[in-house]
Simulated scan of single mutants.
Amino acid sequence: MAAPSLNIPAIETVLESLRRGQRQLARNPRAAVDAAVRQLLSLGRVREERPARETYRIDDLARASNVTVRNIRAYQERGLLHPPRREGRVAIFDDSHLSRLKIITSMLERGYTSGHITEMLTAWESGRDLADVLGLESALVPPRLEDAPVTMTLAQVRELTLDKESLQLYIDAGLIEVKGAKALVRRPELLRSFAEMRGFGMPTTALIKLHSEVAMAVDDISRALVNEAVRQVGDRFLNVTDPSVAEVGELVATLTRFRELAMGAVVGTLGESLERTIEDLLAGYLSLAVTPAEDDQVG
């Protein structure tokens, strides 16, 4: 089975960059491989033939990318955006800059900090341009998370966590990472649910303990699902010593679809289980409420 929905040239470039990135692999092999995995799972549809690169002055680039001139210059200063070509005193940008700006904007919207983005860009410096790796913006289709990380101001975080003690507990649990005047909230919807649960009288310590227990149980479920899938169909992918681009593409497509199917199945099963559990609890509670007292029972 082929993987027609994937960008084969981009997959090939990711693999080649990983093979050629010996410096990154030697220094931090897990990070390099993880970065390649994230890029592979982000590749979506087939890219059309790329036209000749267009060129832009900085004002034109700002209009095309919906990024202000001020931010473009700031990205250049931070090393996020590679230098433009110079024609005299005029800076000339091209569609590789436009593509990278779209990537930077997308990652910022998904909660990455500039530091994270710099690390990811640097990881691919030994290979081709990141715009080529990702196949321009047409290949930038990241997996959507229901509770994706968000960067907030400290004031917003304090409002979300309700008090200083809870904030510290969330930081200790790895749910929040404070960075100067900002904070990365890894599960904002979860913390909003916690805030509402606290309104019912549940302390933050109990909520975090419950979250940890549920997370471990969900990890067990994930391993069971994936391990069974590997047992059933893994031979098609995992017994290959030198996989072709097409085989990697098929594996990425299969795993991406499996993730969607498994999430639907687990969410449905969890919903049904919660419904039964709540119904049983309520039935038991009501049965106690309507049981007649001994004096009222007919002898």
Rank of each mutant, 00 (worst) to 15 (best):
T55C: 07
E137K: 07
A206K: 11
V157Q: 13
R20P: 02
T205I: 15
L43S: 01
S114I: 02
A253Q: 08
D129M: 09
L108H: 00
V90H: 12
V245W: 03
L15S: 09
T113Q: 00
A265Y: 08
V226L: 08
A52L: 13
E279S: 14
S273M: 11
I221T: 14
N66C: 06
G21Y: 07
L40T: 03
V90Y: 04
L145Q: 10
A262F: 05
P203H: 11
Q297A: 11
L6M: 01
H82G: 12
N7F: 02
A52Q: 15
L175T: 02
A217E: 15
R231G: 02
D129F: 12
D280E: 11
R128F: 15
S222C: 04
P4V: 00
A52N: 11
I221P: 00
P84W: 06
A224D: 09
L270C: 09
T105M: 03
P203M: 04
L81E: 13
G135E: 04
T291K: 08
M216P: 00
E87I: 14
E294W: 08
I8C: 10
E177F: 03
A206N: 06
P143S: 03
P143L: 00
I72S: 05
D280Q: 14
S287D: 08
R78C: 03
V185T: 02
E12T: 13
I278E: 13
A62C: 05
V37F: 11
D280Y: 12
A64M: 10
T256S: 06
A10E: 01
E165F: 06
L41F: 11
T113F: 00
L191I: 12
A26R: 14
S244H: 02
G135N: 06
R30E: 14
I8E: 15
K179T: 07
H82Q: 11
R50Y: 07
S273K: 12
D280C: 08
L162Y: 11
R30I: 09
A265S: 09
L251V: 04
L261R: 07
M263D: 09
G88E: 02
K164R: 15
S5Y: 05
L270A: 13
S166M: 03
D163T: 15
A217S: 11
A123I: 10
R23H: 09
Q76A: 15
E49C: 05
K209M: 15
V245L: 04
G44P: 01
V252S: 00
D147I: 08
D219K: 15
E279G: 12
P149S: 08
V178G: 03
K102S: 10
P143R: 02
K164Y: 13
R110D: 03
A36I: 07
M216L: 15
D172N: 07
R63W: 08
T55S: 13
V178F: 02
F200W: 09
I103R: 04
G44D: 05
N227W: 09
S106M: 04
M1S: 04
R158K: 12
E54H: 10
H211G: 07
I278D: 09
E189Y: 13
A246Q: 08
K182H: 11
L270H: 09
I8H: 14
A253W: 05
G44F: 01
F258C: 02
A52G: 13
R63E: 15
V266T: 09
G268D: 01
A195H: 14
L81W: 09
P29Q: 10
L225N: 06
E137A: 13
L15I: 10
T277M: 15
I92R: 12
F258V: 04
E159I: 07
N71F: 01
R23I: 11
